[in-house]
Amino acid sequence: MHPFLLEENMVFVFWGHVVAAGGILLGILLLVLAINRIQPDPPAKALALVSTLAEVAARPHGPRTLRAWFRYQCQLNFQAGLTPASLEKAGEPGSHRLVEITQALQQAGHQAVLVALLGDALYFIDLWAAHLLLAQARPSEPIRAQCLAVIRAYAAYPQLAALAREQQAWLAQQGEEVVANSTVRSA
C-alpha cells in the first residue's frame, strides 16, 4: 500500500473521533441544562394548578396525591427543623401547609390516609400525622390510642432528647400520661 493512502485514512479516523467526542460533550451539555431547569419544589407547582386542596381531594387519585404532598411537606419540615410540638416555630408556613392538607383529607372523608401514615417514621411523618389527627379530627378511640402511642414512643426516645422533651411537654399539657421510664436527660 502506498504510505500516502494510510496517512489520509488516519486523518479521517482522527476527525471521526473529534466529531464523536463533540457529540458526547454536546449531549452532556444538554443533559446539564435540562437538569438545571427542573423545579426544586414540584408539589408546590402542581398545587398552584388547582384552586383548592379540597378540589384535589375530590379527584379519583386525590387522596394518593395529598398523601404524597403530606409526606413531602414533612420532609421539608424535617429539613427546616420543624416538629409538631415545637412551640417557638408554631407559626411556620410548613406547619400550616400540613394543617391545610389534613383539613382537605378530613373534609373529603379520607381520614384513613392519615391513619396509614402513622406507620411511616421517615421524616417524623408518623409524629406529624398523630398530632394532626388528634388536633384536627375526632378520631375513634383505637386511632386516638395509636396516635398517643406514636407520641409516647418519641417522648421516650433518648437519641433525640430535644424532640423527646417537646413530646413529654405536649403530653403533660394535654393531660396525658407522660412516659414514666424515660431515659431522656434535661439539658
Rank of each mutant, 00 (worst) to 15 (best):
G119N: 06
R185E: 15
A164Q: 01
F14H: 01
A48E: 15
E92G: 07
G22F: 10
Y72P: 02
Q173N: 15
M10Y: 06
I35K: 01
K45P: 07
A108N: 02
G81D: 08
Q146T: 07
Q111D: 10
L118F: 08
E166D: 15
T83G: 08
G119Q: 11
L118W: 09
P3T: 10
V184W: 07
S186E: 15
R138Q: 14
F78I: 01
Q146H: 13
L29Q: 08
E141G: 05
H61F: 05
A34H: 08
L25E: 02
A46Y: 07
E88S: 11
P158N: 08
V19C: 04
A149C: 02
G27Y: 07
D120T: 10
K45D: 14
Q111K: 11
G27W: 05
L30E: 04
W15N: 05
G27A: 15
A108K: 02
L98A: 01
A21K: 03
P84D: 04
K89Y: 09
Q168S: 12
C147F: 00
A145V: 01
E141A: 14
W15L: 14
D41A: 14
R97D: 11
L114T: 02
T65M: 13
I151E: 03
V19D: 00
T52N: 14
T65R: 11
Q168W: 06
A121D: 11
Q168H: 05
V150R: 07
L31Y: 09
V150F: 04
P158A: 09
G91H: 06
A187V: 12
A121M: 01
A57F: 07
H131W: 15
A68R: 14
Y157G: 03
R64V: 12
A153I: 00
H110G: 03
W69N: 01
A104Q: 13
L31R: 06
W170L: 13
E177I: 06
S140W: 02
W128K: 04
P42S: 08
L163P: 00
C147P: 00
S86Y: 04
A108H: 07
L117A: 05
V19E: 01
F12N: 06
S140V: 02
P43F: 06
I24Y: 10
D41W: 13
Q167H: 08
Q75A: 09
L105I: 15
G81K: 10
Q79C: 00
A112H: 06
I151S: 00
W69S: 00
G16T: 06
L133I: 09
G119E: 04
E88N: 11
Y72I: 01
A44D: 09
H61D: 15
A34P: 01
V150K: 05
D41T: 13
L171D: 05
Q73M: 09
V32T: 03
T183A: 12
V179D: 11
V113F: 06
R71F: 00
Q73F: 11
A155T: 05
W128L: 03
Q168E: 10
A172F: 09
G94V: 12
P40Y: 03
Q174S: 04
Q136T: 10
A21M: 14
A68E: 11
V32C: 04
V99I: 14
P40K: 01
L122V: 12
L47Q: 11
A129C: 10
N77D: 15
Q75C: 11
S186D: 14
G27M: 07
L87Q: 13
A108V: 10
